[in-house]
Design a protein around this nucleic acid. Structure first.
Length: 677
RNA sequence: CGGGGUGUAGCGCAGCUUGGUAGCGCGUUUCGUUCGGGACGAAAAGGUCGCAGGUUCAAAUCCUGUCACCCCGACCA
């Protein structure tokens, strides 16, 4: 997608103007062949609005390709970006962006800017360094914890290296905006962010310092023109445009809003098998969500009712030492994980007030061994803020962490047990026979076999009436409720579950890398920090906010994960560092130099970015290096073909070693046509 | 934060068990021969062996401490 219509901020005269170069003995003398510096004609400044491509020479750039990558580089994007001379490590999770990488990043950022501007947002730039007090109001110093970089200045004051800018921009707005007439506003920046990740890994995919576009919107209303929903939808469209224009294969999925708070959120994920996040999709309805958020469609309950089923044998205790995981225990006990019950203990995070009123409270979640508990769903069903219980605390309460069974909850005060629908059964409908469970033995290093809900729980499980099959079930045994046990959907969705959007459809799974995330923040920050405006009735009103992020440097890495082969990245045209690499096999040959200049000039005039490989090296290494740059088109100038008036034209994505011989007169048109197709 | 591992030339590694002049491959420089998918020959430059203590006549090697980096997990806009 290039061409004259594609206005660009690259200054066309940024290359080939190094006067000192001609005196450098190692370099080819060269002339300026881009007469494009804005020139004064009379009193008028003429500025071209046609995009000219950049032209650069390998010999005067820094593109340090290597045959081998550092041994700690494991994922493809890390290995290939290093080998291709895009990045170099500086420290753990900190990288230099070398010229090629910066060109990719700038191309992504330019697309981001164009689409953000088109969607009505304005760019600004906030500092990376913030006084620590700003984080105190919103308590995010605690929420971020050790992930927040702290910097002490010479006066002993604490500062933060910003992981994100909600506080700074909200503070800014407090000083600038006080009327509904000034809203809505949507402000963004492209800036370096800092997070002291516990474990930086995978090269650019999880760094401690990275480049991000973050946008924040401010509204007087939720609905209607200028409301948050309006801007949120505009951002959704802008993001779709951005990643489409970057020519990435991506999915927009529903997501949990996470610790940043807020009510609705979508993630934009680059699809690739090596991604860290799992996405569940209903292919027919188009519904997609991340595992944490994904809903499960309606399912029939067990045919004989919850918990119903005959015991299959006497309760046997087995000694199971040194088996850390469910799978290990299952193997040892000779059962499948789906025949095991996993019992997870959460502690209710009570306010001091609630603690005085209700005492310590716990929520125990029971799911099948092959399922994962979804903390968000447990939170919603219990109606309480919860966190995974501290092992020592839980053990003091009588839970043998690692070996807990549902029986441990019976008769305990302030404990709500939530049993997942798939765990609350005693009869296997598929096999048409009663089933048994393996559960913890409620003491260290013991598990039991043949657990039966009705026989072995120590109480009638059918007390768990009024099954909480939906979110928002009133609090059970906690806070004065009359149930201490409920059945509900509390596990992560998984492959094969019914689609929540379309009856009869099943969910499929795929992997992705998160590159964008949009949130409806609501009033979390404006309320905490006191951002208010006067509305048309002269009433004070708390401003409604949204925020919208794109990992720019991560997008570059994700693109390589999505599109590469063993020889290097394969960039899409839209964000390739250059579009064409002109590979001179006899760089000392005067005729070849002349032709190279001519082609570069013509390509540049057509808006094509050109890298000239003018190094005096053998063909083999030059071709390997060309592949490592991932530049979409390689045009090779070599004596034999040239004698017949031809050059070689080869696409990076084509596997074959050799390209086609094209007449010199046609090659520029062919490049442009290929790039625009 | 828990478990595991690694620090020796720009990169990849050997040497350490059993202390005795610091090596190999790639890359780099020079010369020559090559020249369409990471060439060949000859010569050369380049390391206070992560750092600090200790043991010893002598430490890359043994001991103690420390720092850095990586992997798995926990965590995670």
């Amino acid at each position: 997608m290039i061409g004259a219509a594609d206005a660009s901020r690259y200054s066309p005269d940024a290359t080939m103007t190094n006067d000192a170069e001609s005196s450098h003995p190692q370099r080819q003398p060269q002339s300026l062949f881009l007469p494009s510096r804005p020139m004064a004609t009379g009193s008028q400044i003429v500025i071209s609005n046609v995009r000219r491509g950049a032209v650069a020479r390998w010999s005067s750039s820094l593109i340090p390709t290597t045959r081998e990558a550092p041994k700690d580089a494991e994922v493809p994007s890390h290995v290939l970006l290093h080998r291709g001379g895009f990045i170099r490590p500086v420290g753990a999770g900190i990288y230099d962006y070398l010229p090629l990488a910066l060109r990719v990043i700038n191309k992504v950022a330019d697309i981001v800017r164009e689409e953000m501007n088109a969607a009505g947002a304005s760019e600004l730039l906030m500092p990376a360094l913030e006084p620590f007090e700003l984080f105190k109001d919103t308590k995010r110093d605690e929420a971020y914890g050790d992930n927040l970089f702290r910097v002490k200045d010479r006066k002993g004051r604490m500062n933060a290296l910003a992981p994100t800018h909600e506080e700074v921009i909200t503070d800014l707005m407090i000083g600038c905006v006080n009327s509904y007439k000034q809203l809505p506003l949507n402000l963004y920046q492209v800036q370096t962010k800092f997070r002291d990740e516990a474990r930086p890994r995978a090269g650019l995919l999880r760094c401690r310092e990275f480049i991000m576009k973050d946008a924040y919107s401010f509204h007087a209303t939720l609905e209607g023109p200028g409301g948050l929903n309006d801007t949120y939808d505009a951002m959704y469209r802008a993001y779709t445009n951005i990643f489409t224009r970057c020519q990435l294969d991506f999915s927009a999925v529903e997501a949990e809003s996470g610790p940043i708070g807020g009510s609705a959120s979508h993630e934009f994920m680059v699809n690739c098998a090596s991604g860290e996040d799992t996405i569940l999709k209903c292919l027919k309805s188009g519904y997609a969500a991340n595992v944490e958020k994904c809903d499960v469609g309606p399912r029939p309950g067990p045919s004989k009712g919850y918990f119903a089923g005959e015991a299959t044998g006497t309760l046997e205790e087995h000694h199971t030492p040194n088996l850390p995981g469910i799978d290990d225990v299952a193997k040892f006990m000779k059962v499948k994980p789906e025949n095991m019950l996993k019992t997870i203990v959460f502690k209710v995070q009570s306010s001091a007030e609630d603690l005085a009123k209700y005492g310590e409270e716990w929520v125990v979640a029971v799911v099948r061994g092959d399922h994962d508990v979804n903390e968000g769903k447990v939170r919603d069903v219990s109606g309480c803020k919860i966190a995974l219980a501290d092992v020592k605390e839980a053990e003091a309460k009588g839970f043998a962490i690692g070996f807990v069974s549902p029986r441990a909850c019976v008769g305990q005060k302030g404990v709500l047990m939530i049993v997942d629908r798939d765990a609350a059964v005693g009869f296997d409908d598929a096999k048409a026979k009663s089933m048994f469970w393996v559960t913890g033995g409620d003491k260290k290093d013991y598990h039991v076999k043949h657990f039966n809900w009705q026989r072995d729980l120590g109480k009638d499980p059918l007390d768990a009436q009024g099954f909480a099959t939906d979110k928002g079930f009133p609090v059970g045994g906690l806070r004065g409720g009359d149930k201490d046990m409920v059945v509900a959907d509390i596990r992560n969705a998984m492959v094969g579950d019914p689609s929540p959007k379309l009856a009869g459809e099943k969910l499929t799974a795929s992997r992705g890398i998160e590159v964008g995330h949009i949130f409806k923040l609501g009033t979390k920050y404006s309320e905490a920090m006191g951002l208010q405006i006067l509305d048309e009735k002269q009433q004070k009103q708390t401003v409604i906010m949204g925020c919208y992020g794109i990992g720019v440097s991560r997008t570059m890495a994700a693109c390589v994960e999505m599109s590469h082969d063993e020889n290097g990245p394969v960039w899409p045209n839209a964000i390739a560092p250059y579009h064409v690499i002109l590979c001179m096999l006899q760089p000392a040959d005067a005729a070849q130099q002349q032709l190279c200049k001519q082609l570069a000039s013509e390509l540049s005039a057509a808006g094509v970015d050109v890298l000239i490989d003018d190094r005096d090296d053998r063909p083999g290494p030059k071709f390997k290096d060309a592949d490592l740059t991932g530049i979409p088109i390689r045009v090779t100038l070599a004596d034999k073909a040239l004698a017949a008036g031809g050059v070689e034209f080869k696409l990076r994505r084509d596997k074959t070693g050799k390209g086609d011989i094209v007449a010199v007169a046609d090659v520029v048109a062919k490049c442009v046509a290929t790039l625009n197709s």
